[in-house]
Each structure stands twice: as C-alpha cells, then as structure tokens.
C-alpha cells in the first residue's frame, strides 16, 4: 500500500468522505467494515476520545452567531503501519469504534486502497443516506398543502 502525494488527495473529496463517515450509522458502518476483511495494521495517534462541540446558530438565521447547545462528538487519529499515512475522524455521537473505523477509512482513502474503500464502504453509506433523505423528502412532499382564503360576509 502506498500513500498518494498531497496533491493527489483532493481536499473537496476528502471533506465529502469525512462528512459521510461522520454522519454514518455506527452499526451500518461496522457491518460494512467487517465485510471488507482484516483491519490494516495501524498506530493510534489519538485514541478514540469522546467530547462535545458547541453548535452555533445565527440570530434571525443570517445575523450574529450565538451558541445553540452542544453535541456529542468522538474523534480519533491513526497512522497506517505499512505506509505511514495519517487518517483523522470527527464523528457524531459516542461510539469509539465508529471514530476509529472512520479514521482508518480516511487514511486508506489517501492510499492506493481508495477504490476498494470507495466500493465497499463509502458508496453503500452514501446510497443508504440518499435513500433515507429521499424517503423523508417524499413523505414531506405528500403533506404539501394549498391554503385557500375564503371571502366571508354578504358583499
């Protein structure tokens, strides 16, 4: 396994897969990961750590930021033994395995193992997420109404 150079790993693409891994359902991610075979050798640069992130909103949706409340987040950083590639993860919730798997996937996506991770992990996760979002959007669309204002009175 070899690491791809910095330029070869597109930041936009990396943002996308890290976000997908962060939002993934932990049990679905674990099942897909197990199906991909043995976990590659790695060191934990940062063992999975559970913490909080303060979520901000904006007054009036567009104005000055304010602190809305916190959410739980678990983070992890790994280095692959074979090539030294570093992977990071910040994932929603408190599942340590979720964070470690996401960090490993982030590292592998920067190596020539990327197509295998894309097929076995990212594509199925993206498909599940798209299907879930589409399902909610379609149920919402079925509740779209047209209100009619009625003219009342004699004249």
């Amino acid at each position: 396994m070899s690491m791809r150079s910095e330029e070869q790993v597109d930041t936009g693409a990396r943002r996308d897969w890290m976000g997908l891994l962060a939002r993934a359902d932990p049990s679905r991610l674990a099942a897909l990961w197990d199906r991909m075979g043995d976990t590659p050798g790695h060191d934990l640069l940062r063992a999975p750590e559970i913490g909080a992130v303060m979520v901000r909103g904006r007054a009036g949706a567009t104005g000055a930021p304010f602190n809305l409340g916190e959410m739980t987040v678990t983070r992890c950083a790994v280095r692959l033994s074979a090539c030294g590639t570093v992977g990071h993860a910040y994932v929603q919730g408190r599942d340590r395995d979720h964070a470690r798997t996401a960090a490993l996937a982030d590292a592998l996506m920067q190596t020539d193992a990327a197509p295998r991770v894309r097929d076995g992990l990212l594509d199925p996760l993206a498909a599940a997420e798209t299907a879930a979002r589409q399902s909610r959007a379609e149920k919402a669309a079925a509740t779209r109404v047209e209100f009619l204002t009625l003219v009342r009175g004699e004249d």
């Binding site: 909080a52 992130v53 303060m54 979520v55 901000r56 930021p65 916190e70 983070r75 910040y90």
Partner: peptide
C-alpha cells in the same frame, strides 16, 4: 466532556 471546539453557524 472535553470541548473540542465550536461549529460554524448552522445554515438553516
């Protein structure tokens, strides 16, 4: 919980 940071303001 340790605080990892603050998010960007959410885009509603």
């Amino acid at each position: 919980l340790p605080r990892f940071g603050a998010s960007r303001p959410i885009d509603t």
